[in-house]
Design a protein around this nucleic acid. Structure first.
Lengths: 219, 219
DNA sequence: CAGTGGTCTAGACCACGCA
DNA sequence: GCGTGGTCTAGACCACTGG
């Protein structure tokens, strides 16, 4: 185990055990340098990674602190937002903004609301070759995600997750400030080899963040 | 913009534009050192971060390469595996392995099967303080995830995603080889401030792309 | 076995923000 | 002001692995 890993796992252990609570200050970098007998670069790398993972928060002059638990949202990963918002005990509403057929593609745009606040701007393409029955759905009352989930089995999905700045139009729809950070999830779904749907979901970053940490190869 | 950020964004741009395709080798560290006129530490930090993000793959002696797009299964992210497997048209089965009450905690272990193959080993703690009615559920027929989703509203969830090696016991339950790479998802859920459940789901790494196996006429 | 990435060192300068 | 974290440098040794 490398020095950096030891530093990280020691701090993680103290936080997860509750020995260090949210808001507590953890040792300064130079104190960890002394404690582990390593260079500041190594301590810095360890703390930087913990901060990026959301476990700690770093403030100049003040030090590093155990972060408050983030409001991570499992909602972001779930195809059917309606079901998940309902499971949270919040009122769910789907607002259709646009629906148009473009050749073999059905384009649907709308906003998912939770507790009467816009939660997610969705831009979706449904490929009518794979889902012809979608052409007769208005999607005024039911969101395309929920409808697809119950009508079309899929065999393959691919995700992309990015952070982007909200455009003026997007910001207006999500009741947030223009240029504000958004989390966007792109999901493409196939049935066998024919594309079923492609959706881009845009979430206001100040209320929802997805900081699941991928640690390839970590113990 | 820092030097490290410039290096990262330049590489990201080349990959996303298609100029560098999956499998292509990107410049060696020492070449980037020359190109950006910075130290190797800075280049290394940038590449390390890109590798952790999954954009590139680094191999000793060979260099760094644009990674193949990861095919994440949406299934892995979803609280209710049963619903998602069913939506894929696969037979779903929950197999309860263990159920025991430990003070105020109910511990449940079991395996999710899809098409009669083990897909996911689940180890769950349900906190009876928040969910007392769980004490009278046997979880022999219904998986705790599905039951909780329909019985307990949650307000906060936190995810951790890691790659781990399967222990002998885990490997046996998942019908894979010991030490094989697994994807593990840890999800903790709260209702307001009281913990509702904590679950660890372990997926065989060679099956996390399992969507491919469900393609009937796969090439 | 030569060259790569993995890790680490012991410095340095800077910007920020609390005192 | 002054100590913190943010970033960077110019080295170093090592383990691994492809040629």
């Amino acid at each position: 185990m490398t020095v950096e890993e030891r530093i990280r796992s020691d701090i993680e252990a103290r936080v997860h055990s509750g020995e260090w609570l949210p808001g507590d200050r953890i040792p300064f970098e130079h104190e960890l340098v002394t404690a582990y007998g390593c260079s500041r670069g190594t301590v810095s790398k360890a703390l930087t990674r913990l901060a990026r993972a959301g476990l700690i928060e770093r403030r100049r002059k003040a030090g590093s602190f155990v972060a408050d638990p983030q409001v991570h949202s499992a909602v972001l990963e779930v195809p059917d937002l309606a079901a998940m918002i309902a499971a949270r005990g919040e009122a769910y509403r789907w607002e259709l903004l646009e629906r148009q057929v473009n050749g073999a593609e059905l384009l649907v745009t709308g906003v998912h609301h939770a507790a009467e606040r816009p939660l997610c701007l969705e831009t979706r393409t449904i490929y009518l070759a794979a889902v012809p029955q979608a052409a007769s759905e208005s999607f005024t009352m039911v969101s395309p995600g929920g409808w697809l989930l119950s009508h079309v089995p899929w065999t393959r999905a691919r995700h992309g997750i990015r952070a982007v700045a909200a455009s003026a139009e997007q910001a207006g729809l999500l009741q947030m400030s223009e240029g504000g950070a958004c989390l966007t999830i792109e999901r493409r779904t196939w049935r066998v080899d024919s594309p079923v749907t492609r959706v881009e979901q845009l979430f206001p970053g100040d209320r929802y963040d997805l900081t699941a940490e991928f640690r390839p190869g970590a113990p």
